[in-house]
Design a protein around this nucleic acid. Structure first.
Lengths: 347, 347
DNA sequence: GATAAACAAGTTATCGTTAACATAAATTTT
DNA sequence: AAAATTTATGTTAACGATAACTTGTTTATC
């Protein structure tokens, strides 16, 4: 049994005996239709199981009322919150959201962005890690006049708005908290060379050390061995675990560590416990993000909370503005504050 | 500065001085085009920053080579793995993937499915929790001939394939493992009345008790107080925590618990530790899913691993088959085995 | 050298929907 | 009762891309 072709407006019109336009008016609930006609049309719509063809509609209307969100790692609650905030904001304005994931490479970034653009989304929010190939492609897209907003990642372009947490300040405060507690040998876990948010966190760490006149010991700053772009996001527990192992094997290990995010911190905690050291008595630890599980680690994790919901909301609002008016001349930036949440992994 | 309209095939054709069809042939790399013409066209494409209009193309071709995936809770690594497997499988066949999330309600389910269908996706994979409103809408969609596959959720329909883990067996084996260790008072955390996968896990639990002639004590089976559909996915640590608190307050608390998933188990572990009880000596605990963090809990969590990647892959393959041929008469079902991973939370 | 095959374009019609315009009847206002 | 307005429908022409067909030219084959 071949799949029967979906009914079109004309099919409905033919069975009812009206013009396609009349059916369109019923479907879209605009224009004048008599009650009698409307009912007959509605009947036919139901019977033939009509579903309007989005491509045709989008083509005619020259907009899709859909925006695309490109995420790197969706298993992080950070992404979830972000996505939800974006969806809520859009939904309130009648837009829908398609999410694409690009977990590994520039190739996937390009594929994801390409797929969305090919479906004529009205705009794009990009929250992946920056990478050369992906950024070049994104630049092309921007220059073909697709409205774009980026979240928490580098992308300098006059037509692209930017929203992020103040990762520098967050890193600074996390480190200062440890310094305030008397720590002088403080490690950093999860350093990367790419210009993402964790680089800012590392800079915050360095800034705090500098301000408190604590010399930087490069051996205390550790990152994944592989290029970060090769590592799927949720394996960062592994990075934390391995990084901590390396720090513990030093002749003079740190008394406190700041991990680039909570997953990394959790991996590090495992390594610490395996060495039969106590948290925070022997080694204190601070994470970043405040994922829901942070209250459930043993001990509960001190961490820096990001305003994820607000990030998503702002990004969506800026994008909608860009879509509505073409008159935004300048790149707009929002850098939001984050909040240190002190739990038992440090005190 | 008004946003200039994107260039069309005809624009390119006009600047080069050829027919639009020739440009189309260059863009799509099919048909004959002389080397000279091709180069001139490519030049113009680049200069005018041409990007083809997906809506027009999809309309003409009557297919989009895109499929939609509706997920409930994306913050669970389970979803991530699933989504990745689906994407990989599709990508190998030239399809792209749009993900929609519907975290809370039937309304959002409908919105998500609707958005995807309105964009004329070629098929749909639905992995949300079953609910009345959503299911009714999904039925309409299926009956308007959109190919659909569901993952790990109830949906009986002749035209809808189904793939899932054997949650019943998983629940059975988790419970039997506890029984084998000598436990007789075994609790269940996270029971729900809706017909999702966790119901099957509960049934597996009950089956194991029955088989080993252990009487069921209803007070040992606990679930969230609110209707499950109101609870965002990642707060299941909370459900686990609260459920365990309730079990611990019983006059005769269990010596082991089986939690409906790893997040719930993690919440339960927190509650156990707060009561100064030891895991597994005082209370043993088993989770479900084997999320990456399960090795990092203290102690490492015994759990039931789902073949998430395979689930996604199978779902995608079945869907692609349905899209290609209309001759699949029967609902197809794949129920995959899961694997008990024994760690330190039980032994 | 004649015929067939491959190549390089152009032409036409259409996918399904809807904006814009046109027409005509019913209703209200003057 | 005439004019103005509202209501109810129909007609036409795109939106941008492309499948299918046609035309003409070059190259290969017998």
């Amino acid at each position: 049994m071949p799949r029967k072709k979906p009914a079109t407006l004309s099919d409905i019109a033919a069975t009812v005996g009206v013009a396609p336009m009349t059916v369109s008016r019923v479907v879209n609930q605009n224009g004048y239709v008599s009650e009698r006609t409307r009912e007959r049309v509605l009947q036919a719509l139901k019977e033939l199981n009509y579903r309007r063809n989005g491509s045709a509609r989008n083509l005619k209307r020259q907009c899709t009322e859909t925006i695309g969100l490109v995420l790197g790692d969706i298993s992080n609650p950070y992404s979830t919150e972000l996505a939800n905030a974006v969806r809520e904001t859009l939904s309130a304005r009648g837009f829908s959201l398609f999410i694409c994931i690009s977990e590994h490479s520039a190739k996937e970034d390009i594929a994801a962005i390409g797929a969305l653009v090919n479906h004529s989304v009205d705009g794009l929010i990009v929250a992946t890690r920056s990478n050369k190939g992906g950024d070049e492609y994104l630049k092309e897209i921007v220059e073909s006049n697709v409205p774009v907003v980026v979240i928490g990642r580098d992308f300098q372009h006059a037509d692209v708005d930017f929203v992020s947490t103040d990762n520098l300040l967050g890193g600074f405060e996390a480190t200062r908290h440890l310094i305030d507690l008397g720590h002088r040998r403080i490690g950093f876990i999860g350093a990367t060379l790419s210009g993402g948010s964790s680089l800012k966190r590392l800079q915050g760490y360095l800034k705090a050390l500098e301000q408190y006149k604590i010399p930087v010991d490069e051996r205390l700053v550790t990152g994944p061995k592989e290029a970060i772009s090769e590592v799927p996001g949720y394996s960062t527990e592994k990075i934390g675990y391995e990084g901590m192992k390396r720090l513990l094997s030093l002749p003079n290990p740190p008394t406190a560590v700041f991990a680039r995010n909570d997953f990394t911190a959790i991996g590090a905690m495992t390594a610490i416990k395996e060495s039969n050291l106590r948290i925070p008595e022997d080694i204190a630890i601070v994470g970043f993000d405040d994922i829901p599980i942070a209250v459930h680690t043993a001990p509960a994790l001190t961490t820096v909370r990001q305003p994820m919901h607000l990030l998503g909301q702002l990004a969506a609002e800026m994008l909608l503005e860009r879509i509505k008016t073409d008159e935004i001349e300048e790149r707009r930036e929002h850098i939001l504050n984050c909040e240190l949440i002190i739990r038992n992994s440090t005190v």
